[in-house]
């Protein structure tokens, strides 16, 4: 039985290794419509292997093998049994985490606020918190364009100021908020005859039943356009005087604001996983160098 279990393990890990190696050379896709139709790629789900059933099934089979080796006493030493139990438990927690927990990004523009409860779709009072991005700060390395750190200064419910920066997440109940990325967004002042509008890139407003907006220019997203219904005009970098359908329009760049991209992660079982990871290293050390080898 022991030999069978070991050879099963060797075959299984061999398959896992080969599929993992192949998968790293395929661009991993999320949209099923773009999956490859090649029979080999399709069968092993190589272009979406990490989130595929073959991956989950193979690692689940590994857990099963570990438990079978414990049940059938293929592992004689207590430390080896302990090590394998820890590995199996860690795999179970990981599979549980990957299938249950969620993670997504939320953009917050400077001087605007979001309701955290709405973002995480959780209506309980505990998460009915307004997050106001007071400012976003980038500190650069001296004489370099490389950022040393970037930080979001948030005000929670108009009371407490908290910071989120890279490597220093914020904990809100069962969620953690991470500083993921940032970008800048321009704010334009639009003047049409006697009316003034302040529009951020992507915003729109109504002027005399006409929809006006500032948008990215599709062929070159670095450039922006002013759109009035279906008509559009390319904008200059700071100031433009336009004439659309005999309508005099002045568009001027007023300011730029940061948009902080916050990663929201719901992770349960992380403390257990951390504990299992450290326990694994400890027991591995005992298995290798302990007195009762």
């Amino acid at each position: 039985m022991k030999k069978r279990l070991i050879s099963s393990f060797q075959y299984l890990s061999g398959i896992i290794i080969i599929l993992l190696i192949f998968a790293t050379f395929f661009l991993q896709k999320e949209n099923p419509e773009t999956f490859s139709q090649n029979i080999f790629v399709k069968f092993f789900a190589l272009d979406h292997f990490y989130d595929s059933y073959p991956n989950t099934i193979l690692f689940s089979a590994m857990i099963l093998l570990i438990f079978l080796s414990i049940i059938f006493r293929a592992l004689k030493k207590k430390t080896a049994v302990m090590l394998h139990i820890i590995i199996a438990l860690a795999f179970i927690v990981i599979i549980f985490d990957k299938s249950v927990n969620s993670q997504f990004t939320v953009p917050i523009r400077e001087e605007t606020e979001i309701n955290f409860g709405e973002v995480v779709n959780n209506e309980t009072d505990k998460y009915n918190i307004n997050l106001y991005l007071e400012k976003f700060q980038i500190i650069h390395h001296p004489n370099s364009s490389m950022p040393k750190s970037f930080t979001s200064f948030l005000i929670l419910d108009k009371q407490d100021t908290v910071k989120i920066s890279v490597n220093k997440p914020l904990k809100l109940g069962k969620y953690r908020l991470y500083q993921s990325a940032y970008h800048k967004i321009p704010l334009y002042e639009v003047n049409i005859i006697d009316k003034n509008y302040k529009l951020f890139l992507g915003d729109s407003a109504i002027y005399n039943n006409n929809k006006i907006s500032i948008e990215k220019y599709p062929p070159n997203p670095e450039k922006f356009i002013f759109r009035l219904n279906n008509e559009f005009v390319l904008l200059n970098t700071d100031k433009s005087e336009l004439n659309i359908n005999n309508l005099p329009v002045k568009v001027a760049l007023l300011d730029t604001k940061f948009v902080s991209i916050i990663e929201v992660a719901e992770k349960t079982g992380m403390k257990l996983l951390l504990l299992l990871g450290l326990a694994y290293l400890f027991v591995l050390g005992i298995v290798f160098w302990g007195k009762n080898k």
Partner: peptide, 17 residues
């Protein structure tokens, strides 16, 4: 394992494939 812990504090996920 330490990389996974670091990634968890930095990116919010301990394993990104």
């Amino acid at each position: 394992i330490t990389g996974a812990i670091w990634a968890y504090f930095c990116w919010g996920t301990y394993w990104e494939w």
